[in-house]
Structure formats: structure tokens, C-alpha cells
């Protein structure tokens, strides 16, 4: 399906559903933070799952799982990433 190919925002991904990052809009993320995210392996092609989202019903922050690692990020970061569910 086309809408899946063009991808959905990571932000909208269901908790626990595996996905792959197909593009990241780095211009929407502060340069230093982009650097840190890439150093942690968050980039195009990375397989990713959302493990936890927000507290008290809010949407910030997110805990994502990459490989054997859990990383906390903010919603603004997730909003800049497009993923395709696997």
C-alpha cells in the first residue's frame, strides 16, 4: 500500500510494533542532538520498537528499543522520523 511505503511518523507507531526507519528529517532536530541520535545508531535503516510512551497520558518522552539497547528520546525527535512497520 502506498501510504505504508511513504511511511508513517515514528510518533504514531503503536507501542511494541516493530518498524524500520525509512527517513529522518534532520533539519527538524537540533544539530547536536542529531549527532547524538546518530551516534546511538538512530538513522535511516535502523529497526526500532517503541517500548514506553509518556507519563500520565502525555506523549513525552519515549523509550525506544534498538537491538539490545533502550533509549529515551523526545516526541520532537520521533516526529522527525518516518518508519515502515515490519
Amino acid at each position: 500500500m502506498l501510504w505504508q511505503r511513504s511511511g508513517m511518523k515514528l510518533e504514531a507507531l503503536e507501542r511494541g510494533a516493530p518498524a524500520r526507519i525509512i527517513s529522518v528529517d534532520w533539519s527538524a532536530i537540533a544539530p547536536e542532538e542529531g549527532k547524538r541520535l546518530r551516534a546511538l545508531g538512530i538513522d535511516r535503516g535502523t529497526q526500532i520498537t517503541i517500548a514506553h510512551r509518556g507519563i500520565f497520558g502525555g506523549k513525552d518522552p519515549l523509550a525506544i528499543v534498538i537491538g539490545r539497547m533502550t533509549i529515551a528520546i523526545r516526541r520532537v525527535h520521533a516526529a522527525a522520523m518516518s518508519v515502515e512497520p515490519l
Binding site: I29, A30, E33, L40, T70, I71, A72, I73, R74, V76
Partner: peptide, 10 residues
């Protein structure tokens, strides 16, 4: 300044 993000390994 710009509000900064939160990126941390758990």
C-alpha cells in the same frame, strides 16, 4: 534559548 531535548540510554 531553545528548549533542548532528552536523549539518554537506559
Amino acid at each position: 534559548g531553545q528548549a533542548s531535548g532528552f536523549i539518554m540510554e537506559l
